[in-house]
Design a protein around this nucleic acid. Structure first.
Lengths: 333, 333
DNA sequence: GGCGGCGTTGCACACGTTTGCAAATTATGA
DNA sequence: TCATAATTTGCAAACGTGTGCAACGCCGCC
């Protein structure tokens, strides 16, 4: 029978011949305890297999060391790399990550935040969806830090981390123009995420500066299958585009595959393609996609730094630069 | 200043005009409380934004509701889908997932388990590495349930979930033989994981039954780049293989890309390839890889069922079947 | 020797829950 | 209407830890 019988500080104290407070202090960095007793305690703890109960510690200190990561599309290349980077940085900072998956329903980001509050998470990082303003306020009022990555900006209080989508989109236009393309298109998903829309709008605006129109097509999610469908729609138009900016690398992969295998087009000779995110597959030989690399490590670093500083940090907005990485899906370069 | 001032059951009780116990019972399913007071409490809680403190609850109940997922290669397609499925199932079972990344050092699975114990996790699921026997014993002694997925079998006590690698490998041999292939090869990584080795050994053994030899090459990790190198090594041999079983879909993708773009080989006409895992990319038009789909939802389901049953379950071993999915990288089929 | 200062130590309370137990309230039955 | 059973309620004791406060021992210094 697994009676869940953990050894407590009490028992360690008995074995080491000291008081329970001494045990607590031995495990608290910077506490007032002599080196001699500290060693006695540590040895007794080792022998008994004692581990500080972080539930009780969190209860007392009013700080659990837990950070909630609220994310959908966990199995997606970009999201999973961001997830990896965040967990690494968190562990380096002595925090521990609680993962909440919001794939199922869409209102679930609210219940996810409530779950985070129940475990008295010190902070939450939101990689998907958008919480109600009321919930956000509740979190902030309770002293929960909030980080929103690539989300809407209308909330004040949390830290917003974004990427300069508009500027990036403008660079794509000049690249396409320099390659001699004239019939521009944008392949977007229907998700309508702020960053996706910013890429679309920035692309259209920059094209207008060159006197060029943009054909926009939107379909489905941000995945590979959406790319297949979008290719179908864009490449059967009377005026077939010769340059397509895809809102996402996954869309770009699907679109390239359809362009080659169903429309027998050569890339980049007959069609230039640019994506966004620089997922691992973008560098594979079958794609060699020109795209923008998301600054995932900087994002993670900034997030962790902000949420682990002790004084109350005011909510601010941070925009990082996405680096353009040239490969073979655009002529010239 | 964010004073972390959460509202407690005390305040809810005052507002609802009941005792603290009543509040507690109102949030405990099956507790003895009248519907009238329950409603009063729930309304007061709603108005104040009260959330049960799971740290304190876990402390009392001696069961935190936390399950630790100890995993490396989080950003990898197969691992991230397994991760997604596990979090979904856990949330459905009312548990919450704590994610511990062991990408960095290799002894870190031990410290990961210690971290899990500090938070009094009800159970840990290990997707990577292998803990010391002493640590495992410590966990079990403390009543922590342990699930090992695709890991070694030498530990008794935990639940082991595996896939029938040997049987699957045998099916690959018959598929290759049926396609008329005679020069078989196995492309493995140097990781030496039990499941990878089982595939290799099963493949060799089954080939021997047909009187065929197998050329084995091992290199690096289980990723795409390893596939590139392995192709280099295998396809430059005097007797070039005409059928390669790759330990992993990622390896297969790399190998296919190298075979096509560097060696100008046609797949499956000149080279048959089979992978393992059925990652999303395996179904992309550029690969259309014949492979085995890991039963991720069953794995996750079995894991969660086992670790959430209340009576002490004896450690057992479970082997699930990997389904063969035919695509276009093998002739015939 | 007395005294102030400093580094350690233990006592006891607090944190926010759950839950056994007994008291109190309500329902049931003759 | 009263006795008794059934349900609901509050009190208080836990759970395992951190930490303020006072006590203690030790050292050096006037």
């Amino acid at each position: 029978m697994s009676q869940r019988d953990f050894v407590s500080a009490e028992e360690v104290a008995r074995r080491a011949g000291v008081s329970r407070s001494a045990v607590s202090r031995a495990f608290t960095p910077g506490a007032s305890v002599s080196e001699a007793t500290r060693q006695k305690v540590l040895q007794a703890a080792e022998e008994l297999g004692y581990q500080v109960n972080h539930l009780a510690r969190g209860l007392m200190r009013n700080e659990s060391g837990i950070v909630c990561l609220i994310v959908s599309g966990v199995a997606t290349p970009y999201r999973s790399t961001l997830l990896r980077e965040l967990t690494v940085q968190l562990q380096l900072a002595g925090k521990v990550a609680m993962l909440i998956n919001t794939d199922r329903s869409d209102g679930s980001v609210n219940s996810a935040l409530e779950q985070a509050m129940r475990y008295r998470a010190d902070a939450s990082v939101i990689l998907s969806g958008l919480p109600d303003k009321s919930i956000t306020q509740l979190c902030l009022r309770n002293g929960q830090r909030l980080v929103l990555i690539n989300r809407d900006e209308d909330q004040s209080g949390p830290l917003h981390i974004n990427v300069d989508d508009r500027a990036s989109a403008a660079r794509v236009v000049t690249a396409f123009v320099r390659a001699g393309c004239t019939r521009l298109a944008f392949a977007n998903s229907q998700a309508g995420t702020p960053s996706l829309m910013a890429r679309e709008e920035g692309f259209i605006a920059a094209a207008r500066d060159y006197g060029l129109d943009v054909v926009v097509e939107r379909y489905g999610s941000t995945g590979y299958e959406a790319g297949l469908i979008l290719a179908q729609r864009l490449l059967t138009k009377r005026e077939r585009p010769d340059a397509i900016f895809c809102a996402t690398d996954l869309i770009a992969c699907g679109l390239m595959d359809a362009a080659r295998h169903q429309f027998s087009l050569l890339i980049p000779q007959q069609l230039c393609v640019v994506g966004f995110d620089d997922i691992e597959q973008a560098s594979w030989f079958s794609y060699r996609l020109t795209t923008f690399t998301q600054p995932v490590v900087e994002i993670a670093r900034e997030a962790v730094i902000w949420l682990s500083q002790s004084d109350a940090a005011e909510g601010r907005s941070l925009t990082l630069k996405a680096e353009l990485v040239w490969r073979d899906s655009v002529r010239g370069g």
